[in-house]
Structure formats: structure tokens, C-alpha cells
Design a binder for these strands. Structure first.
Lengths: 193, 193
DNA sequence: TCCATTCTAGAATGCTCGTTCTAAAAAAGA
DNA sequence: TCTTTTTTAGAACGAGCATTCTAGAATGGA
């Protein structure tokens, strides 16, 4: 038999994801990816196909990454209201930590490509719907536990929360201060009172 | 003396703006611009400098364009509350009309370039601040005329409204329906009640 | 040891990019 | 008519792009 793969496919894909997340599709060259992923150009093509396929794979790996992060946040929150607040805080804090790029890969992609590429538009819409569905689930759970009023329309409220989350994920790329963003969060969450 | 310029500088700049607005910086080639602006490559370089300078000029012309549009909307609104609603409706309706590209050139630029280019980051932040300032002015005027409660923090509310406007300007690029966006607008504007 | 496979390095290919160039036609006043 | 400038067309340039290729070294069973 033959030699085994030496690199961890998941790990190098995450490297690609980080670069696309930070720079977008067009600004990221294959040379950038070769440098950053740490494997040979040939290995990239053999494993992931062309640049576009690698981008799609990166976006899907981001989807998983975010879902894991959100699950952690929620399970570390004592109430559902706090869980929702922590999701918003996470977006603002992540931009400050600089471990990952500021902003959201899905939002970036929706803005950069979804008018020009229907497949991408479909994928980003799905990711947005999923985030909304998560909010919806949290809100319903909050109602069941008596934390939230029952006359709250959970679906519209979920869309509203998500809309604000998108806004914040754009604003963190500008020179807005954390203090500004915090007071916006406070006002957003008034809808839950 | 010499021959006069034959093209209208403002008009061809608007053509460039539309293309950058729709496609972003990286996806728009000089050849695209030559085709769409209808003047010779050489004339573009002579008049606007290089691609980056043309992009900045386009972004600034967008700034003026939006300011004019908003002024029209506001002056056609009977109350300040309606004015604010009409601004939100405008963003959603513009995406449907397809006269101009869906989304917002400033938001697109902030997302595409502001992490990588400090000048752009500065310019987009300024444009965002201006929009907020407009909301702030409208809210204060609303308070003076007794349309809005005086205990409303106009600055934070302006930031909140703007945050939602950004969110909508991302969502209009996806497959969200107008109906979805309308119900989000309703919920956003509850903050004014 | 041999063979199949995956890795590496880096050159080659063909295309498109932004930018500049040559050259000539058009316009407008001197 | 002559001069000056702006226009046009389209070639040319050098760089960078995504992708493929040649060539050989490394690995791990058969």
C-alpha cells in the first residue's frame, strides 16, 4: 500500500477558512493559501479541488465552527436571556481579541458574492436562516420557562435579533468603540423586556 | 485653445459608482469600467487617476447620492416617524426596483476593505457616523415637535436604528422576502413607541 | 526490495490584471 | 490654417493570477 496523508485535512481547511474570512474570496490568492495552509499547492488541489471549491468548503467549515461556538456560549449561560446577550457580547468581544478576524465570514460572503453567485446566495441565506432558527428556539424555550412574555412573536423577534447581529458584525470592522456597540446591545435586548 | 471635454465627469463617475457598488472593488476590472463608463481607458486615467482613486471618488459620489435621496425622502414625509419608516422602506424597495444594485455601497466597502485599508476604514466610519447623525437629528426634531417621548436617548437610538439599517442592507442581498423584511421593520420601529 | 501513493520543490502555462504607450482623428480658438 | 488639447482605437508591458506539470523524495505495506 501507499503512504498516508501527513496533514490534518480539518486543520488545513481551518487555516484556509481563516484567510478567506479575513480577506474575502477575491483578495485571497492561491499563493496566499499555499503560504498560510502550510501544505503544497498540489496537495491543496488534490484534496479540495479548485479555489472556488476550497472556498465553499471553508464556508461550510465556518458554519460548523460557529455552531460549536454558539453551543458553548449557550450551555455556559444560566438563563436564556443571558444566553442571547452572551451571543451578542461574543461578536463584539471576538473582534477585540483578534484571535479570529473581526466580522462574520457568512456576512462577508453574502455581501461580496451573493449578488453575483446564486449558489453562494443560497448557502448564505441558509446560514442566516439557521442562526434565526437558533434565536427562535432560544426565545421559545425562554417563554416555556417563564423568562419571556408569551405575547412575543418569537419568529419575528428572532429575525430582528439576527438583523441586529448582522449589523454589529459589520460595525466591528469599522472604528466604532466597544462602548458604542455595548449600548446598542442594551437597546436591542429591550425587545425582550 | 484646445478641444473641450466631451463627457460629463459626474455622469461617468456615477457609472463607475454603480459598477463598484454592484461588484465591489476586486471583482471590478478596468476593462469592466471602460465598457460601462463608455469613455476611453486613457480618459479614465487622465480624469480620475488610477483604479483606487476612481474607487474613492465613486464612494464619495455615493455619499452625495445617498444624502440627496434621504433628503428627498424626508421632505416628502409628513411626520418624522414616517420619515424614519420611509428610510427603512426605501432600502427594502430599492432592492426590488433593480434600478440600483441591492445593498449599500458603504456597507459593502466596509465589509470588503476596511480591515485591510485604513483610509477606507476611516471613510466608511465617517459615512456611518453621518447616517447616525441624520437619525439623531430626526429623533431630536421628533421630540421637539412632541411626536416622540423625551426620555428617549436619541444618540443611542440613532445608533440602534442605523445598526438595523445595516442589517437590512445585508439581508436584501440574500433570498429574504420583502414580507420578512417588512415585519422586521415594524419591530425595529417599536423602539419609537 | 518493489510498488503504489503522497509528499515536496518549483517551473511552466495561459490568461487577466492595471497601467502606459503609440498614433491618429476631432474640436476649438488664434 | 495652425496649434493645442482631448478624444479615440488598440497594442504593449510587466506583474500576478489559477492551474497544471515535471521530477524526485518519502512512506508504508506486499
Amino acid at each position: 500500500m501507499a503512504r498516508n496523508k501527513e496533514f490534518d485535512e480539518k486543520a488545513v481547511l481551518k487555516k484556509a477558512m481563516e484567510l478567506f474570512w479575513k480577506q474575502g474570496y477575491e483578495k485571497t490568492s492561491m499563493q496566499d493559501l499555499v503560504n498560510h495552509m502550510g501544505i503544497h499547492r498540489r496537495s491543496i488541489y488534490d484534496t479540495f479541488g479548485d479555489k472556488y471549491s476550497l472556498f465553499l468548503a471553508s464556508l461550510k467549515s465556518y458554519e460548523v465552527f460557529v455552531a460549536e461556538e454558539l453551543t458553548k456560549i449557550i450551555s455556559n449561560s444560566s438563563t436564556l436571556k443571558i444566553a442571547i446577550r452572551n451571543i451578542f457580547e461574543y461578536v463584539v468581544n471576538l473582534a477585540e481579541l483578534e484571535i479570529y478576524p473581526a466580522g462574520c465570514f457568512a456576512v462577508n460572503t453574502a455581501v461580496e458574492l451573493s449578488l453575483l453567485d446564486k449558489d453562494i446566495q443560497h448557502l448564505t441565506t441558509k446560514m442566516f436562516n439557521d442562526t434565526e432558527e437558533l434565536f427562535n428556539k432560544l426565545l421559545k424555550e425562554g417563554q416555556n420557562k417563564g423568562e419571556l412574555k408569551n405575547d412575543l412573536n418569537t419568529q419575528v423577534t428572532a429575525q430582528f435579533l439576527h438583523n441586529n447581529l448582522i449589523g454589529l458584525r459589520v460595525l466591528v470592522k469599522t472604528k466604532y468603540t466597544k462602548k458604542d456597540l455595548e449600548s446598542i446591545i442594551d437597546l436591542i435586548l429591550k425587545v425582550l423586556e
